[in-house]
Design a protein around this nucleic acid. Sequence first.
RNA 1: GUGGGCGUAGCUCAGCUGGUAGAGCAUCGCGUUGUGGUCGCGAGGGUCGCGGGUUCAAGUCCCGUCGCUCACCCCA
Length: 452
Amino acid sequence: MSQSSQPRPTKVTPLSGFPEYLPEQRVVEQHFLDVIRSTFELHGFPSIETRAVEPVERLLGKGGDADKEIYAVSRLAADLEAGGDAELGLHFDLTVPFARYVVEHAGRLSFPFRRHQIQKVWRGERPQEGRFREFTQCDIDVVDVGELAPHFEAEMPLVMAEIFAQLPLPPMVIQVNNRKIPEGFYAGLGIEDVAGTLRVVDKLDKIGPEAVTELLTGQGLRAEQAEQVLRLASIRTEDTSFVERVRALGVEHPVLDEGLAALAAVIDTGMTNAPGALVADLKIARGLDYYTGTVYETQLIGYEEWGSFCSGGRYDSLASDGRTTYPGVGISIGLSRLLALLFAKDLVRATRKTPAAVLVAVIDEDSRPVSVRVATSLRGRGIACEVAPSAAKFGKQIRYAERRGIPFVWFPGAGEGGDQVKDIRSGEQVDAQAGSWQCPAEDLRPRVVRTT
RNA sequence: GUGGGCGUAGCUCAGCUGGUAGAGCAUCGCGUUGUGGUCGCGAGGGUCGCGGGUUCAAGUCCCGUCGCUCACCCCA
């Protein structure tokens, strides 16, 4: 009866494509973020953050059918009042905002300008496994004025290879191509629709060579052209031998030569500095609308069907203010997709779901200040801990710790001369002093470990 | 945007050809006076996505709608 006067709570329903993590998953995410950030910094990439919104006009500027992807942002009241078009949209990547940032702050930046950026992005696409509407990207880019030295194209994947090597992941391989190779090759074959051809070639892994041949001839390619296109696409080498294999196909074009030289330089650098991390794969397409040179794509070996977890490439005109052109090269980790795979397949796990290493037990509420003092002392030495929420029976306090994975329970005044601490995994309980007890290093904070 | 599948407790699901809801797991409590995990007993928790229709009666049939999911498209 009186219930009817209470506002009914809005029903909670899941929102597809907007992932939220449990604390134990967040431990994993934060560890990954820590490794990514520190490695970016180790390579001298300072951090920036851009606003979440850009003018819709700017977001649409990059071609493609971006309009389907963009979430418009406007005041609710503005919609009701004017019904006007939204002028702002949430960014769907970090490259567009970065390009705008470069132009806007060009006068205060030093070029070549390198930066890293770790932020959420939003895309209005249909969510699927590993594809979200809100997700986190971790980008590094280098941008210069007028010209960009090609060696930066070799630097990008080295940074990523270093990150992957530090994370508890199955082996990953960064596949590299240079857009100029297929472009020059196709031009040498007399194929005009480069983008259309690449789009089909990109499906090779998914639908197989026969279906690709069918699609290519359907697009107007002659049988021998389609055959050559497939031959090029099938080339994949861990060293620079791809150059000879392309040459052996007998197609010649100056743009092809440029592409081969550029890719050979990237692979060469990779072989020296990150052996085994890079592979030249001539079917990689990526971002048809804007990449102009090197392109990167990354797969987890054994989980190829999940797609790329880290991709990027070179833009001859990342940004432009009309008079000056800023070429750039960048690469980005799709952290959310990576985590989605790891969680779905249970490949990694956090050793516990709370930062606390110690639960300080409470004897009774009157002695809570004693327990708080213990906690303060432990924290003063960098040992994360919490005080038991209630002076329940010790069994319940231990269970409280156990449920959360807290490895130690501290009992004030339990010993002859003072306190005791119990490792609840082994059951071992020893005398200890809050001012000097050493927490084992591996228990100091939650760790992320591979399960297999 | 297009097409298929599905929407019952926090989670995974059962509920036959319509007769006013169940299991397992999880959570919490108890198993007597301060040391957990096993085990036993018990409890809480559901407008059966929402709206309408057929019927004496709908979780169960019909229509609509919303959501979730898979695939396509695309992927910055």
